[in-house]
Every structure is written in structure tokens, then in C-alpha cells.
Design a binder for these strands. Structure first.
Lengths: 219, 219
DNA sequence: CTTTATAGTATATAAATTTACACTATAAAG
DNA sequence: CTTTATAGTGTAAATTTATATACTATAAAG
């Protein structure tokens, strides 16, 4: 069922509910809406009933504050695609998806993060300051990037398993691969890197730089 | 003020409010809570008042359903730092921060995203499939990466302003900079790239590849 | 052994909130 | 020119909801 467009007045009511909800955490009463919009509660009620019919919200009669907004714009971030020439880039119908972290980085609950240090994964386009999302429950496949502990030292490398050995390859010719036996006790896969996020604005970069001295990163 | 921990019963009430909110979009009444928990409204009220004192929620007396949950547990992801040799990497005291998207990518509300296409920003370590976070309200500074529309075509480049001209430089020697006049009407800065996220697990990469044919990316 | 915090029952009252009903008015559609 | 959808006013009644008050009970702390 498509979302029918709201009239000007209905939009005003809808907006008020939205703002009220954000401010208070619960919806307004008919009275509260009526006061702000300077109309009668009965009139507000009529608007709500109409909007409910249009599927813009749910209105439960007999229930105080019984309003639920639908089409909650997700906390998400709209993602624009490329549009045909001449078509405005930032138009509603050029939104190809909505970004929600939970959906994008879908992994087990005990997902964790590490910051990258150094240039050993340069050719995989990972650089100092990048934040990696690591899934500790996922079994690594050959070619995937993993966080491993070698003799207690965490390190980021590409994973290749062959017979009884595991090879951890850096992505930079300057460094050499590490080869360990699968039964080696001084070695442990901490998790598989399933995502990465990088801050690019200057203020954030400064913060990261400051952090750098306080906390370590994993190379 | 630290969040004092809830007693077992308080947690039950809290959880019920949370579930009710998710199911209905508005908080429950004392009566509704009392019915489900099989206690009296007065008892529920007492719990709410206590929890409000503990800052677990806001409770507005005299207001029907006047409950707002606070401390929405952030969808946060723990970030581990590098620990002294021998110290277990994934220990509680090695958590240097918690990742929350809204804090990490702090920008104006109308933040949007675009997927990268092509290799024109290769040397800035951006590759096809990366998702960029773009702030349309931020004024670009020299050297920052921006999304611009040149003759209607969106493009990702590094921004340099000098006198009356703006230079949009790719980060790949294969491509040439674009130079436009500041007053050029066929040119518009759509926003400044303030962050990037990349999916690295295979399943996600496949999804992106499938998407690729349906929707476009911005080069 | 007394205080304090938590957890409850039970009931009447007060206040908040929704609702029904009777009307008016305007603009667009058929 | 009549119907339909929207947008209201105003009021009393019905219902929902919160609150005050008086008690009981348990466990932990001092």
C-alpha cells in the first residue's frame, strides 16, 4: 500500500507528533496538539484518523497518546546512486539504499574493533587510523584478512591455510609472511576482519592522532 | 552521574516498557504494566520513581504514559588497543573506546552516502564498493575530498580553491584534474567526504557486486 | 534490634484524556 | 448544483489513567 501524501494541515500535525516524540519519548495527547496548533482536540482527532487511513501513522482510539508514527525514517543515512544525466543527484528517487550500521556490519554480537597501525597492509588499502570491525566467531577463509595473536602480539594479516600450516601474509612487499603450524600454541586467530571505517574530516583525524599516543594500534 | 544498576524487579519493569514501546510506539500505562507483571499499579509506580532516581528512565508524574527510556544501550562495539606483551589482547582493560556510528561520523542531520566507483581516487585508498559519508553542510577546505556535480555528473575528487578557480584533483596519475570557475553554474559541491566504510566479508562483497548492476556508483 | 530500601495489596479519589454529537465553512470534482 | 473531502468550533459525557493513603512483608546494614 503506497503512502498517500498528506495535506498541509496533516503534515503539520504529523510534524508536531514527531517533534514531541523526539523531545519527550512519548506521543502527545489530542489536547497538547490542539493547544499548539490552536485548534480543537476534535479537529486534531479527525486529522489523525485521516492520516491513519493513509497509513502515515497508527492511531489507536480510546488509548491516551495512542499514536505510532510509521515510515520511521531510519536513523540511517540515505545513499544516493548515480542518476541519468540531467537528473538531480540528490533527489528522493535517486536514493538506492539506506545505511544502517547493524545491517551493514552484520555479525555476531561480540564484534569488536581495532585501529590499524603501520603500513603492512598498504596494498589492501588499510592505513594507520582506520578502524577495523572484527568478528571473533567467524571461521577465516583463505584470502580473508584476520587479526591474529602471534606470541601474544596482535597483528593484521591475510590468512592462508595449507595442510598443517597457516600463512599470515602482509600486503606490502617490505614485509615477509609469517608461517605457523596449526597446532602452535603461541598463535591464535582473534577474528576475521569483516569491515572497516575511516574518518576523513580533519577534526576527527586530529582526535585520532591524539589518541595514538595514549592507546596503541595493531600492526 | 553513573547509571546505578537496577534490581531484578526494576529490570523486569524496564524490559516491559522497552518491549511495549517497540511493539506499540508509545509507552504503557501503569495499569498495563501492572496487569502483565501481575502486581498493582501503585507498585509499578514505585518502581518507576526509583528507576527515575537512578536515571534509567524519565518518569513524568501526572502524565499518562509519561515514560521515556534513557541510556539506550548504544549499539556500540568495543575497540581494543594494543596491550603490553603477555597481556591478553581481548581483556576488558584493553578496551580503549566504544564505537558508535553517530559519534564517529558526527555531522549535520542531512548526511548522506555514496558508493565509490572506479579507481580515480586510488592513491587516497578509496576503491569501488566503498561507501562514503558525505556532509552537504560542511564547507570544503583545501585538500579535503568532496563529492561534486560537474555538468550534472557526480564525481569524487580532492578539492583545491585558488582565487577564482576550483581544482578537482583525482588521486591517480592516469586521470587529469578538473578546473572550474567558482561562478560556474554547471558545477556544484554536493558535500565533503567525512568518512568511509568498507565491507570486507565475502557475503557482503557479493551483495555489493549484485547491486552494482542495478544501481550506479559515483566515480 | 532498629533503620532503610525494596516490593507489595487494596481502595477511593482526582485529574487527564478521549469521544460523541451538533454545527459551520471552503474548495474541488462530477 | 450537488456531492465529497477537508478543516474547523464548542460542549458535555464517558472513560482512562494516575495518585494518595493506609497497610503488610522481607532482606540487608548498622
Amino acid at each position: 500500500m503506497p503512502i498517500q501524501s498528506l495535506t498541509e494541515r496533516q503534515q503539520k500535525v504529523y510534524d508536531f507528533v514527531k517533534e514531541f516524540l523526539e523531545a519527550h519519548g512519548y506521543p502527545p495527547t489530542l489536547q497538547e496538539m490542539a493547544n499548539t496548533l490552536k485548534i480543537q482536540p476534535s479537529a486534531v482527532r479527525a486529522h489523525l484518523l485521516l492520516m491513519a487511513k493513509k497509513n502515515a501513522l497508527r492511531y489507536v482510539p480510546h488509548i491516551s497518546r495512542g499514536i505510532e508514527l510509521l515510515q520511521e525514517r531510519p536513523v540511517g543515512i540515505p545513499i544516493y546512486g548515480s542518476a541519468p544525466a540531467g537528473h538531480p543527484f540528490m533527489a528522493q528517487d535517486n536514493i538506492v539504499d539506506t545505511f544502517e550500521l547493524r545491517r551493514y556490519i552484520s555479525a555476531s554480537d561480540d564484534l569488536f574493533g581495532v585501529y590499524v597501525r603501520g603500513d603492512s597492509m598498504k596494498d589492501a588499502q588499510l592505513s594507520t587510523g582506520d578502524l577495523l570491525f572484527v568478528d571473533p566467531k567467524k571461521d577465516p577463509r583463505n584470502g580473508e584478512i584476520v587479526v591474529a595473536a602471534v606470541e601474544g602480539e596482535p597483528t593484521i594479516k591475510r590468512y592462508y591455510k595449507e595442510d598443517g600450516t597457516i600463512e599470515l601474509r602482509p600486503e606490502n612487499k617490505k614485509y615477509k609472511p609469517i608461517v605457523v603450524n596449526t597446532w602452535d600454541e603461541n598463535f591464535k586467530i582473534l577474528g576475521v576482519v569483516i569491515g572497516m571505517i575511516r574518518a576523513l574530516d580533519k577534526k576527527k583525524l586530529d582526535t585520532i592522532a591524539a589518541d595514538y599516543q595514549t592507546h596503541g594500534r595493531v600492526s
